[in-house]
Design a protein around this nucleic acid. Structure first.
Lengths: 190, 190
DNA sequence: CCTACCGATCGGTAGG
DNA sequence: CCTACCGATCGGTAGG
């Protein structure tokens, strides 16, 4: 966390406001005020409002992608891959709650070459998890369910942790991981 | 479905666009165009853009509330109440996919007396489900988990069906209900 | 339901 | 990084 460029500071601050009120409802003037400069001055560090959203969405996407690669490469049961996936999602939500939230909720506001790309990246991520679930069903580790139902139920549970979970309020991160794993693994396991 | 007032037509159309691009990113001119009139003419039927969002959010909220009351009154196991809840959420998402989506994603854009009220109503709904889960844990029907983890994992799975499920594409409503029930009930049951 | 139009605010630029 | 400002668009109103 040594030095943070002005641009990074702007993006961090933007993620906080975008999470609270959404990308479209946030004005550059409001963002500038939070950063402590005039709106016009923001443009010395970023090219456009769009660019901020892009940086947030794709940096989150890349974090998820690099972790899923690591999970795929592990030599372990599909159940253990599932556990790793749960752990990964909790970790990222705790590390970057604002960015994850914005990527989940506001990617629709990306403009079009980037939006199309984002959807492809996201779809790719989903396919790789679907693959883990399918194989786990084939080996008999998991119940025979429609893959899309298993996939999106799992992903909904994981993606929307950020909407309700606040670390340490009455559930610690470890307790969250434990209970969520119990719930989801027992739901999927044969 | 006999006669639909002009106002209802406007609200239905709004729900479709709000779902696609979000409340803030949708202009009254765009809505007017879809309805087939001039933007100014919308105001003969609705008071403000705000009002449209309010009607959508609270009509959805009231549907959920009336169903949860019915479930509470059933004389059955907590497991069966849980199954009823899953069925209810699927039913509402299939009946009113756009409205449910807008209520889930855009309630943050309500302005403030109404936003506060919405949060209370929503919290009340969550508490009543938490109550079912807590009692089911006490009787030993359900696993001992932190109630908030069980509650929000369940609700995330149910609320965000609308993001991915399209009836009949490759999973029928009955298959969805069956697989989702299997997943969630096995996850929670002792 | 439309024409005409309002003040406010938006994202962003020029020039220093 | 600021002052000054742009054209575009916003939600909404007046008056018919």
């Amino acid at each position: 966390m040594a030095k943070k460029s002005r641009k990074e500071l702007i993006i961090n601050e933007a993620a906080i406001i975008f999470k609270q009120k959404g990308y479209s409802a946030t004005s550059m003037r409001e963002l500038a005020e939070k950063v402590g400069i005039e709106a016009a001055s923001l443009y010395n560090h970023i090219r456009s409002k769009d660019e901020i959203l892009e940086e947030i969405c794709f940096s989150v996407a890349h974090e998820y992608l690099s972790f899923i690669t690591e999970i795929e490469e592990r030599e372990c049961s599909y159940t253990d891959k599932l556990k790793g996936l749960i752990e990964l999602h909790i970790k990222l939500i705790i590390e970057k709650p604002n960015e994850v939230s914005v990527a989940n909720n506001d990617w629709k506001n990306l403009s079009d070459p980037k939006k199309k790309l984002y959807k492809e990246v996201r779809k790719g991520y989903e396919n790789r998890i679907a693959n883990i679930l399918t194989k786990g069903m084939q080996t008999g580790e998991f119940k025979q369910l429609h893959v899309s139902v298993a996939l999106f139920t799992l992903l909904s549970s994981l993606r929307w942790i950020e909407l309700w979970y606040r670390p340490g309020r009455d559930v610690t991160a470890d307790e969250l991981k434990h209970d969520l794993t119990t719930f989801l693994v027992h739901g999927l396991k044969n």
